[in-house]
């Protein structure tokens, strides 16, 4: 499934870019993330707890940052596997100066499999958007601190 969107962050582009590469900040912003452990240069392992109303599940996940081109763009890949299936998100994030802050736009692809794919069709798009929104909302909050 293709995804895309635009978010505004109230910080300068250099700061926004470095926040997005900071594992401590990513860990706070990725919904349900229990902390990132570096495994290689820009690769991290994580445990994620997805909780969406009644639905919940634990995922063993990975975060990978590639194609870094500071402070303009980079690629972020997040994936997780658990008992209820797996999910993978891969997106190119672009940062541009806007209204004194930074506009972050992303385009990418989300893939899910297993039980969540079987029942989640109707809700996949909405849910993915919500998770991404939570990520950026949290990021904006971090930026405000």
């Amino acid at each position: 499934m293709k995804i895309g969107g635009v978010y505004q962050l109230p910080v300068a582009r250099d700061r926004a870019y470095s926040m997005l590469q900071d594992p401590a900040i990513l860990a706070r912003c990725i919904p349900g993330c229990g902390g990132l452990n570096r495994t290689a240069g820009n690769e991290y392992n994580m445990q994620m707890k997805l909780a969406l109303a009644s639905i919940s599940g634990l995922f063993e996940g990975k975060v990978r940052i590639t194609e870094q081109n500071p402070p303009e763009s980079f690629r972020l890949a997040v994936e997780g596997k658990g008992k209820i299936g797996f999910m993978k998100g891969d997106g190119l994030l672009r940062l541009v100066d806007k209204d004194g802050g930074t506009e972050v736009s992303y385009v990418g692809d989300v893939q899910v499999g297993g039980t969540i794919a079987a029942v989640g069709q109707r809700l996949l798009d909405t849910t993915a958007k919500m998770m991404i929104k939570r990520f950026f909302d949290q990021l904006a909050e971090c930026a405000g601190q």
Binding site: Q111, V112, G113, A117, A118, V119, Q121, R122
Partner: peptide, 9 residues
């Protein structure tokens, strides 16, 4: 991935 994996879809 089969997206029509249940009678829901």
């Amino acid at each position: 991935q089969l997206l029509t994996g249940e009678l829901m879809d």
